[in-house]
Amino acid sequence: MTTTNDVRPLLASVIRPSGGVWSRVLTSRQAWVGATMLLTLALWALVGPALHPWDATYVDLAAFGQGPSTRHWFGTNDIGQDVYAQVLVGLRKSLLVGLVAAPVATGLAAVVGAVAGLAGGWVDRALMAAVDLMLVIPAFYLLVLCSPVLARAGWPALALAIAALMWMVMARVVRGQTRSLRERGFVRAACFSGAPLWWVAVRHVWPNLASLLVADVTVGVGTAVLMEATMSYFGIGVRVPDVSLGTLLAAGGPAAATRPWLFFFPALALVVAVCAVSLVGDAVRDAIDAGGARG
C-alpha cells in the first residue's frame, strides 16, 4: 500500500478536474482498494483459464465430485467438471450481465430524469407516475413474471430486463437534481437566451451530474450481478447452456453442507466481485456527498 499511498495525492494534483469530486475519489483509500480488487478479478477472469488446464465443459472421468486438489484447484462437480474453470466462466458472464445492465439503467435514468425535470408539467407527472408504478411492484416479482419470455431470449435479454427494473430510483434522483439545477442561474440564463431542452440537458444538466451518474453505474453493476445471481439461483435467470455464478450456486446449493466447494467458491467469487464494485461506487458517492456538504 505504500506505493499507492505516495501516488494518490500526486495523481489527484495532476488530474484535478473541475469540481474536485474526482480528486477526492483518487485520494480515497476505499476507492483504491476496490479498484485494485476489481482489476485483479477482471484480470483473473481473462487470463485465469490459461493458468489451469481444464475446460469448463470437459468431463474428467477420473474425478466425480472431488474436493479441491492440485489437479482440480476448486474441485469437481458430480459429473466431473472442473469448478475452477466453471467459476471463471460464470464470473465472466455475471460481470458481463452487470456491465450491460448498469449503464443501460443509468442512461435510462439520466434521460427520463432530465426530461421530467426540465419539461415539467404533464410530461413530468406522467414520467414520475410511471416511476412510482414500477416501484410499487418489487423488481424481483416483475422478473419472475417475465421469466417465461426471458427464458426464450437468452442472457442479453435478461441483462436488459434487469436494467429495466433498476433505473427508477436514480431517475427520481436525477429529476430532483435537474429541478434544482433548473433553478440555478446558469440554466435559467440559458433558458432566457432561448436554449432548447436538449441543449440544457447536454450542456448543463448531465455534465453537472456526471459524478453522480458514474457512481450509479458502478453501484448498479453490483446490484445487477446480485439480481442475476438471485434469478439464476431460482432457475429463472441465465439458463443452460450459459453458465453464470448464479447457475453454479443453484447447482451447488443443495450440496453446500456435504460438498462445500461446489457452493463456496462461486459464492466467494460473487461476494468479492460485488464488494469490489461497491467499494468503488461508494467512494465516488462519498466524494460527491462530501462536495455537497462543503458547498
Partner: peptide, 18 residues
Amino acid sequence: RTVQLVAQDATDALNPRM
C-alpha cells in the same frame, strides 16, 4: 434577448463544468 439579466449569485449563475 435585448434584455439581459445579471443574476444575484455568480457562483450559481456559472456552470462549474463550462
